[in-house]
């Protein structure tokens, strides 16, 4: 009848090698990696990952060892003549493998509950920086309460301070996630959530929306710019006092075009433009990207965007304004003055 064969252990060897290579080779620690924490929240979460993974790996190795040993040792042989011993169970053993998992769960529960309270308690104290985040299809609005400063898609925070983000949505559910600083929290219409994060080092941290929010979900990115407290304060001051100065004829033409085509939706500090549908464009030229991380903030990127926004970014709410090539050039020249 059937040939009694070992179940291809040799065949599974390449698989094991592949998996190991994946584990080692895959962990390149990219710029949006939860495995390279840059603040206490992400650090705590990573420590929980290692704690649980270590315990679970031990369990997995035990299971795998028993499993593989059984498959080799107790495989059917041609010499089998009698039935194996018919064992129906063992109360003692069954109690053992009920109690051991319970002990492990108690251990994991302690850190879970501890960190739940540490990480999920809003930081409303005086020392914490308050930032209001409003999610839009498909971009991020950041407001600094009490300062009047509003920006989009790049949030500035001071290094070494707890930042308390209050999270709200203007339309559908979004999720605010900066893996190197910490885990995500959803922005739910009709609710106000909070999330606190802290950056230990100055730098740019990458984030993006983690909850499906429509066609542009993949294009709803943002950056966190962690600055020294002095630089942060200077930035806030700059944002409050920013003025627009256009000099060349092209920039002036761009300003006129902006007034005519863009000001219903966009605000620029220091101008009479106070539209509140699209992102606030104050100091736009200082941001690394436009359209929530979709395009580089260069003349080329701006031109691509202005030519046909929904073509550059699926689901973009900004319509194709039908601008001519020269109009686009003027607008780009104007937008690049917004420093």
């Amino acid at each position: 009848m059937r040939r009694h064969r070992r179940p291809g252990f040799k065949a599974s060897l390449p698989l094991v090698v592949t998996l190991a290579a994946l584990l080692l080779g895959g962990c390149g620690l990219g710029k949006q990696s939860a495995l390279s924490p840059a603040g206490p929240v992400a650090q705590a979460q990573l420590s929980m990952l290692w704690q649980s993974l270590a315990i679970m790996t031990v369990i997995f190795i035990v299971v795998l060892a028993v499993f593989v040993y059984s498959l080799i040792r107790f495989r059917a042989r041609k010499t089998d003549t009698e039935l194996p011993k018919q064992v129906h169970g063992s109360t003692a053993l069954e109690i053992v493998w009920t109690i051991i998992p319970i002990i492990i769960i108690v251990a994991l529960s302690i850190s879970t509950v501890h960190y739940a309270f540490v990480l999920e308690t809003p930081q409303t104290g005086k020392n914490a920086v308050q930032v209001q985040v409003i999610g839009h299809q498909f971009w991020w609005e950041f407001r600094y309460p009490g300062t009047g400063v509003v920006t989009a898609n790049q949030v500035h925070i001071p290094v070494g301070k707890k930042v308390n983000f209050t999270l709200q949505s203007a339309d559908v559910v979004h999720s605010f996630w900066v893996p190197r600083l910490g885990g995500k929290t959803d922005l739910i219409p009709g609710r106000t959530n909070t999330l606190w994060l802290e950056a230990s080092k100055a730098g740019v941290y990458y984030g993006q929306c983690a909850q499906l929010c429509g066609a542009g979900h993949a294009y709803m990115k943002f950056t966190v710019l962690a600055q020294s407290p002095a630089a942060y304060t200077a930035w806030l001051h700059h944002m409050q006092t920013d003025t627009v100065s256009v000099t060349t004829p092209e920039e002036k033409a761009g300003l006129a075009l902006f007034k005519q085509n863009c000001s219903t939706c966009h605000t620029i500090q220091g101008t009479p433009f106070h539209g509140n549908i699209g992102p606030n464009l104050t100091a736009l030229a200082t941001r690394p990207t436009i359209a929530a991380g979709t395009l580089p903030n260069t003349a080329q990127g701006l031109a691509t965007w202005l030519k046909n926004p929904p073509a550059a970014k699926p689901g973009a709410k900004m319509p194709d304004l039908g601008l001519s090539q020269s109009q686009i050039q003027s607008l780009v020249a104007f937008l690049q003055t917004l420093k």
Partner: peptide
């Protein structure tokens, strides 16, 4: 583990 899940959730 809820606080750690905030990193894994929706990823």
């Amino acid at each position: 583990m809820a606080p750690a899940d905030l990193q894994y959730n929706d990823s």
